[in-house]
Design a protein around this nucleic acid. Structure first.
Length: 478
RNA sequence: GUCCCCGUCGUUUAGUGGUCUAGGACACCGGGUUUUCAUCCCGGCAACAGGGGUUCGAACCCCCUCGGGGAUGCCA
C-alpha cells in the first residue's frame, strides 16, 4: 500500500487538509504503508517555499510522518511538481502525437463567451471543441498572431465513467457532463493539477488516493487521462468535507482554520488528532478520547461516514482540556512553559513550586495558555481589586473579616498553620459562616471571589504573601 | 442552470430488516461532591427530512419530492 498527501503550498495548513493528512497517516500506520508527501506547487503565483515550510512544520507538529518527501527524498522523486516539468512534457507530447490532445488557441475572452453560451442553453460542456481540428495553416496563422496555445485533452462524448469509491461506494459520471475538452497545459507551458496528479500518482505507484470530496468531480477527468496514458488506476476514497456551523465548507469566518493557530493557542496535537479522527468516524465502543495507537488499531477507511461533518470548536476545546488534565505534571509544565514565559520571568523561581501550582490549577485550563490567567495572582505581588470585590470588602462584614484576619496573622497564626487554620479561626472570631465567611476571605487574599480551594491556595502563596495581602486589604480605602 | 455526493437529537456519532417506545459523547438545563468556580459523579432535554412502495415487520432495501454540500478555472 502506498499513500500520499499532496498539499499545495499556497498558505497555512488548513484544518480540512490536516484531516486528509491525518487520515492518510492513520492508514499508513495501520498498514505499514509507504507515505509520500508531494508538494503540488504548479500555481506559480500563489505557491511559496515559506508555505511549504510552514505546512511541513505543522504536519510534524501533528505527529505525521511520511516516508518520502521533498525534505527526505525517496525513490520516486523529485517530490515537488515544479521539479518534474520535464517528466510531464514527455507525456504531453505522447498525448499530442497520439491525437488524444490538441493545441487550443482560444483566448480567455472567447472561452468566457462559450461558457456563458453553454450556461444559457443548458449544455454541459463549457468548451465547444472549436480548435479540435485546426489545419496546419490555421495553427500557423494563430502562432503568427502571437497567440500562445494551451493543450486540451479530448473528451469523447457519452462514455460512462464509473468507479468504486471506498467511502462513497459506486460513483458514475458520463463524459458528456464533465465540461468538454479540458486544459491540461496552460499557455505558459505549465501543466495543470488535474492532469499531472494522474502522472505523479502513477509514477509514484500510489495505490490509494485518499482526499477530500471536493476532488470527487475531478476524478472522471483523471480516470480519462489515466486510461489515455494506459496507467493502472489507483483506488479512490473521497472524504466528506469539514463544514462550519452554517454547513458551508469550513473557512476563516467560522473560526480558527489554520493548524498553526491551534498550536499557538495552546491546543495539544494529540487532542487535535483525536478530535479530527472522530469527525466522521467512531470507535467500536464509542469511546471518544482514545490514544493514537488505539485509533490506528481500530480505524477502517470504509467506516468513515459518507456525509459531511460540522467542526465543533467547543468539543475540541473540551477534548483538549481533557488531554491537559491527564498530562503528567512535569510534562505539562514543559508544555506550558513557553506560554508562561511570554508574561512572566521564570528565571529566579523555584521550578518545583511552579509545577505544584500548575498541578493545582490544571482543572481550570482547557488550553495551555489558560494557565496565564489562572496563575497571575500566584505570581503578582499586588492585587487589582475589582469593583465587585471592593464592595464586598468594604461591607460591614468585609471590614470585620479583614480586621480579624489581621489580628490572626499578627498574633495567632504561624508559618505552620496559617493556611489550614485560618478560615476556621476567622469563623470563630467573626461568627460569619458560609458565603459570608468564604467570599470575603477569598476576596481579600486572592482578589477574586472565585477560585480553587483557599487553604491550598494560601499554602502555595506562602505565609509572607498571605500576610502582605491582608495588610494590603487593610489599606483599602475609597 | 447542469453534473455528482449526502440527509438519525442543536453538533458529532451508534445503528446494516425484528433485540429501537432509537444508544453514547459535546453543548444546554437541573442535582450532588458539607463556601464559590473548575474537575468529578448523577439526572433531564432532544433525532430517524417528507411521501410513496417492497415486507408479516423498515432508521436500515427501492422510487419520488424536499433540503444541504461540492464541482462546473489557463486554482489545487
Amino acid at each position: 500500500m502506498r499513500l500520499r498527501f499532496a498539499p499545495s503550498p499556497t498558505g497555512f495548513l488548513h484544518i480540512g487538509n490536516a484531516r486528509t493528512a491525518i487520515i492518510n497517516n492513520l492508514l499508513a500506520l495501520k498498514n505499514q504503508a509507504d507515505f509520500v508527501l508531494r508538494i503540488e506547487d504548479t500555481d506559480m503565483e500563489r505557491s511559496s517555499i515559506e508555505s511549504e515550510n510552514s505546512i511541513i512544520n505543522d504536519l510534524k507538529w501533528l505527529g505525521i510522518e511520511w516516508t518520502e518527501g521533498p525534505d527526505i527524498g525517496g525513490n520516486y522523486g523529485p517530490y515537488r511538481q515544479s521539479e518534474r516539468f520535464d517528466i510531464y512534457q514527455k507525456y504531453t507530447e505522447k498525448l499530442l502525437n497520439e491525437g488524444k490532445a490538441y493545441h487550443c488557441f482560444c483566448t480567455p475572452e472567447e472561452i468566457d463567451n462559450m461558457r456563458e453560451e453553454a450556461q444559457k442553453t443548458g449544455r454541459n460542456e463549457t468548451y465547444n471543441g472549436k480548435c479540435r481540428n485546426l489545419s496546419k495553416e490555421q495553427k500557423q496563422a494563430f502562432l503568427d498572431e502571437g497567440r500562445k496555445p494551451t493543450v486540451r485533452f479530448k473528451v469523447d462524448s457519452d462514455i460512462d465513467i464509473t468507479f468504486n469509491d471506498i467511502i462513497k461506494g459506486d460513483i458514475s459520471f458520463n463524459s458528456s457532463n464533465i465540461g468538454g475538452d479540458f486544459i491540461i497545459v496552460r499557455s505558459d507551458q505549465i501543466p495543470v493539477y488535474n492532469y499531472i496528479v494522474v502522472i505523479d500518482d502513477s509514477l509514484m505507484k500510489i495505490s490509494h488516493v485518499v482526499r477530500g470530496e471536493d476532488h470527487l468531480s475531478n476524478t472522471p477527468k483523471q480516470i480519462l487521462i489515466a486510461k489515455a496514458l494506459k496507467f493502472e488506476l489507483p483506488l479512490y476514497a473521497h472524504m466528506p468535507l469539514v463544514m462550519g456551523n452554517d454547513r458551508k465548507k469550513l473557512s476563516k469566518r467560522h473560526g480558527i482554520t489554520s493548524v498553526n493557530i491551534y498550536r499557538e493557542e495552546g491546543y495539544l496535537p494529540e487532542a487535535l488528532v483525536n478530535y479530527i479522527s472522530m469527525l466522521g468516524w467512531a470507535a467500536e465502543n464509542e469511546e471518544e478520547i482514545i490514544s493514537l495507537n488505539e485509533i490506528v488499531k481500530q480505524f477502517e477507511l470504509n467506516k468513515i461516514a459518507a456525509s459531511s461533518a460540522v467542526f465543533d470548536f467547543k468539543k475540541l476545546k473540551w477534548m483538549n482540556g481533557n488531554y491537559i488534565r491527564t498530562l503528567e505534571n512535569n510534562e505539562l509544565f514543559n508544555k506550558m512553559r513557553p506560554y508562561l514565559e511570554k508574561e512572566y520571568s521564570l528565571e529566579n523561581m523555584d521550578q518545583n513550586h511552579i509545577i505544584e501550582i500548575i498541578t493545582f490549577l490544571k482543572p481550570y485550563c482547557e488550553l495551555l495558555g489558560d494557565i496565564n490567567d489562572q496563575i497571575s495572582h500566584f505570581f503578582s505581588e499586588t492585587i487589582d481589586y475589582s469593583s465587585e470585590v471592593r464592595e464586598l470588602l468594604k461591607s460591614e462584614n468585609g471590614v470585620k473579616i479583614i480586621a480579624a484576619s489581621k489580628e490572626l496573622f499578627d498574633s495567632v497564626l504561624t508559618e505552620q498553620n496559617y493556611h489550614s487554620d485560618y478560615i476556621n479561626l476567622v469563623k470563630e472570631m467573626t461568627g460569619a459562616t458560609g458565603k459570608n465567611l468564604f467570599m470575603p476571605c477569598r476576596a481579600l487574599i486572592t482578589g477574586s471571589i472565585h477560585g480553587p480551594d483557599l487553604a491550598e491556595t494560601m499554602r502555595l502563596y506562602g505565609y509572607d504573601k498571605c500576610k502582605k495581602r491582608i495588610l494590603a486589604a487593610c489599606q483599602l480605602k475609597d
